[in-house]
Design a protein around this nucleic acid. Structure first.
Length: 279
DNA sequence: ATGACCGCGATGCGCGGA
């Protein structure tokens, strides 16, 4: 199975690039973040004509996630158990948290070829100590709890958490750590919440196979100067991680007019009944 | 050139992104 994750920064503005990426990399599954539209606005015609199924989840111009797959998608869910919501004016205290009954469109899961795949858009956090920062940490903590309980029930489960994590795990994952406003993305609580997934057995599978950034800001010539950040990752459960074959980043996708500020992160797994090249 | 923010909805800017 060839799986990619990509923060597309508007599906409508980049419909042609989505189709290009699907076909250029011969993807089985593409998880998108920041589609910035409602499901009925998603540009699905060309993609479906190319033989893919599309599931989109979005409420408005903010956030939004999607799954595109040439394989069947079952058990679709638009939030994970415990996923927090955000209510404007929420207190910063962790104990008085933010549990809106309607989480934002930041998670979409489906069972594809025996793998439970989640397209995830972790909250930005805005600033250390901001209510959105606590929201971000709670989101990661609840995702961790979900992984833990799922793997407790079935240690052999094949699970993939893919997406835009908005965390810089190591200082080498950014061109200049001091450039981050007040240390957002690299604060210890954010890193601890990111790495806590490893304690459930989940493993980030691109770390040792590629060294490249996945995001370059549109401003200040960040891409030509290669001043980027590596914040898009693929976590896999033990049963899936052991099947990892390759990982890559499509850096060329950042070039030219009309690029997203993120590039696709791609991994292949030797799962059964998938594309011919996986045999 | 890989090149000097972008997308969205609502309008003539503000918000959010990172």
């Amino acid at each position: 199975m060839k799986l990619a994750t990509w923060n597309i920064n508007s599906a409508r503005a980049r419909a042609d690039r989505v189709l290009d990426v699907l076909q250029r990399h011969d993807l089985d599954v593409l998880a998108l973040q920041e589609i910035k539209c409602k499901p009925e606005q998603f540009p699905r015609e060309q993609i479906e004509a190319a033989g893919y199924k599309v599931i989109a989840h979005g409420f408005n111009q903010w956030n939004g996630v999607a799954l595109i797959s040439r394989l069947n998608m079952a058990d679709v869910r638009t939030s994970f158990p415990g996923q927090p919501g955000f209510i404007k004016g929420s207190p910063t205290s962790d104990s008085l948290f933010l549990r809106s009954p309607d989480p934002e469109a930041r998670a979409l899961g489906a069972l594809i070829n025996g793998v439970e795949i989640w397209s995830l858009y972790i909250p930005n956090g805005r600033a250390v100590g901001d209510p959105h920062y606590h929201y971000k940490l709670e989101f990661l903590d609840q995702l961790n709890s979900y992984a833990q309980s799922t793997l407790n029930t079935n240690p052999e489960a094949k699970i993939a958490f893919v997406g835009d994590w908005n965390v810089i795990p190591y200082d080498d994952d950014v061109w200049d750590p001091s450039a981050m406003e007040d240390g957002l993305y690299l604060s210890e609580p954010e890193r601890e919440a990111f790495f806590a997934l490893e304690q459930t057995g989940m493993c980030e599978v691109t770390r040792n196979l590629v060294t490249n950034y996945t995001y370059w800001d549109y401003q200040q010539l960040r891409f030509p100067k290669n001043q980027g950040m590596r914040i898009d990752y693929i976590y896999a459960s033990p049963a899936l991680a052991s099947l990892t074959k390759t990982a890559q980043i499509d850096r060329d996708e950042r070039k030219g007019k009309g690029a997203s500020d993120h590039v696709p992160v791609i991994a292949t797994f030797t799962t059964e009944h998938s594309s011919a090249e996986d045999i």
